[in-house]
Design a protein around this nucleic acid. Sequence first.
DNA 1: GCCAACGTTGGC
DNA 2: GCCAACGTTGGC
Length: 139
Amino acid sequence: MAYWLFKSEPDSWSWDDQKAAGAKGAEWSGVRNYQARNNMRAMKVGDRGFFYHSNEGKAVVGIVEVVKTAHHDSTADDPAWECVDLKAVEDMPNPVTLADAKANQKLEGMALVSKSRLSVQPVTDDEWAEVRRMGGLKD
DNA sequence: GCCAACGTTGGC
DNA sequence: GCCAACGTTGGC
C-alpha cells in the first residue's frame, strides 16, 4: 500500500467537511496541477493519506483512505483533470504542524518540507510511521 | 498582506 | 523550443 499527503485550505474544504462526507467519501476535486494529478492517477483503493490544513493551522490533522481511483473531476470542463475519492478514517490526536515536521531530522526529505507547493504528495513508509508517531497514533 | 517559489502560458 | 510575463500557492 502506498501513502500520500493531501493539502487543503480549511476555508474551502476542511477536515470537518471531509468527516461530514462519511464513509462513501468525497471527490478530491479542484486539483489543477499535473504532478498532483499524476500522483492521484497512481493511487489504488485502500491507499492511505495524511490530511493537511494549509494556511490556517498548517498541520496534519487526520488520516484519509482512497475509496475510488482517479476519474474525471466533476468541477473541471477539461477531461484532462481527474481526482480520486477520499473518506476520513481517523483524527490525529495531536496535529503535527509544519514546524514540527521541519524540526524533525527524519522528515527533512519529506515533500511537505521540500516541495511545499505541491498539493498532492507521496509519503514514504518511514515518513508515514514517523508522522503517525508524532501525532499520537499507533500502527 | 507581502513576497518567494514555482508552474503555466504565449510570443517569437 | 526558449524564455519572459503572469498567476497561484502557501509560509510568514
